[in-house]
C-alpha cells in the first residue's frame, strides 16, 4: 500500500525539480550542439542558455518564466495498491500542483478557455492532465511530471500510405521551418513524432515521444531507429539554429513512436519539447522508499506490445 501523503510530498518535490533542473541527457545534447554550432548569433543564444541552466540551479529559480502546462504521467506495477484509491491519488496530484505553483513559484498559466478565469494555481477543468500506464508485476508507482510549453511547435496531419516517407519528411520539415522561424518553437528541442494510431492517439504518441523519451534513446525497431537518426540529421541541415538565426542546431534528438492505424491512413504528429525540457520522475515503493530520476522509461516492451494478450506471449515464450 502506497500512502497518499508520500505521493503528494514526492509530487511537490518533482514539480520543483522539473521547473528548475535541466535533465542531464538534454544538457549533454545541448552542450554538444553548442560546440558544433558555427553561427555567431546562434552560438550566443546557446551559451546564454547554458549559463541560464546553471543560474536556475544555483538560485533555485525556474529555468523559464513560462513554466508551461504541468501534467502528470502515473504508471504502476500490477500489484500496486494506493491508500484511498485512485480518487485520493488524483487529489494528491492536484494539491501538489497547486502548492508547487505558489511555492516554487511557477507561473499560473492555466485559465478557462473562454472566460479566462485563473485560479492562480495551475488547476482547473482538465488541468493538470493525469495519464495512466501499467506494467506487469511489481508494487511501485512511477510519478512523472512534464511541464511542456503550450503554444508553438506542434502540428498534426492526416497522411496516407501513398504519401510514403517522402510525405512524412515534408510534413516534418514544414513543422520545423514554420515554427522555427523567429524561434517560436524554442529550439533546439527534442522532437517527438507520432505515426499512426487515430488522430487523438497519434497526438498522444508524438507528445510522449518528445517528453517521455530521453536524448540518445532509440526505438527498438531498427528501421525506425534509423529514421530517428536520419530525421535528427535532416532537421539540423536546414541551416537554422536557435531563435531562427542562421545556424545548425534545431534538433537535439528525434524520437518516433508508432501505433496501429486505419488501413487507409498514416496519421502523423510532430511535437517540439522546448529548450527547457522540463521532466522529473520518481518511483515510490510500498515500503516508503523513493528514487528520483530524469528518465521516465515509459516506452517499455509492454507499452509497445503487439500481441493480443501479454500473458499468452509470456507462456508461449516459456513453452517454446
Amino acid at each position: 500500500m502506497i500512502s497518499t501523503s508520500l505521493i503528494q510530498s514526492t509530487a511537490e518535490i518533482l514539480m520543483d525539480k522539473a521547473a528548475i533542473e535541466i535533465p542531464q541527457d538534454y544538457l549533454d545534447g545541448l552542450t554538444q550542439a553548442a560546440d558544433a554550432e558555427d553561427g555567431d548569433l546562434s552560438s550566443f543564444v546557446l551559451q546564454a542558455m547554458l549559463e541560464n541552466y546553471a543560474v536556475a540551479k544555483e538560485d533555485r529559480r525556474a529555468m523559464c518564466g513560462d513554466t508551461g502546462t504541468p501534467r502528470w504521467y502515473v504508471k504502476m506495477g500490477n500489484e500496486t495498491q494506493i491508500e484511498g484509491g485512485p480518487i485520493a491519488l488524483e487529489n494528491a496530484l492536484r494539491l501538489a500542483t497547486a502548492n508547487a505553483t505558489v511555492n516554487v513559484p511557477l507561473r499560473p498559466n492555466r485559465v478557462h478557455p473562454l472566460w479566462r478565469t485563473d485560479h492562480n494555481n495551475n488547476v482547473g477543468i482538465g488541468a493538470p492532465e493525469i495519464e495512466y500506464g501499467f506494467e506487469p508485476g511489481g508494487e511501485w508507482l512511477d510519478l512523472t511530471t512534464v511541464h511542456k510549453g503550450g503554444l508553438f511547435g506542434t502540428d498534426y496531419r492526416m497522411l496516407f500510405p501513398s504519401d510514403g516517407i517522402e510525405g512524412i519528411k515534408r510534413f516534418y520539415l514544414d513543422s520545423l521551418v514554420a515554427f522555427g522561424k523567429r524561434g517560436l518553437a524554442c529550439q533546439p528541442a527534442i522532437i517527438g513524432i507520432g505515426l499512426g494510431g487515430t488522430k487523438d492517439s497519434c497526438m498522444v504518441l508524438g507528445k510522449r515521444a518528445a517528453c517521455l523519451r530521453i536524448v540518445g534513446d532509440r526505438n527498438p525497431d531498427p528501421k525506425i531507429a534509423a529514421l530517428e537518426d536520419e530525421f535528427k540529421e535532416l532537421g539540423n541541415s536546414i541551416g537554422m539554429g536557435a531563435m531562427g538565426f542562421v545556424g545548425k542546431s534545431m534538433v537535439i534528438d528525434c524520437n518516433i513512436e508508432v501505433g496501429y492505424c486505419h488501413t487507409g491512413g498514416m496519421q502523423m504528429s510532430v511535437h517540439a519539447f522546448c529548450l527547457s525540457s522540463r521532466r522529473a520522475v520518481a518511483r515510490i515503493y510500498a515500503d516508503g522508499q523513493v528514487e528520483y530520476r530524469t528518465d521516465p522509461d515509459w516506452f517499455t516492451p509492454y507499452q509497445r506490445r503487439e500481441s493480443v494478450t501479454w500473458e499468452t506471449q509470456e507462456s508461449s515464450a516459456k513453452s517454446a
Binding site: M158, L159, S162, E166, R170, L234, S237
Partner: peptide, 24 residues
C-alpha cells in the same frame, strides 16, 4: 529575424529535395 529568414531561405529548396506534398 527577417534578415536571418532571407539567408536561410536560400538553402531550403535543397533541404526539401526528396520530399513530396501531402496527397490530401
Amino acid at each position: 529575424f527577417e534578415r536571418e529568414n532571407a539567408k536561410i531561405a536560400e538553402n531550403l529548396h535543397k533541404v526539401y529535395e526528396g520530399t513530396r506534398p501531402a496527397t490530401l
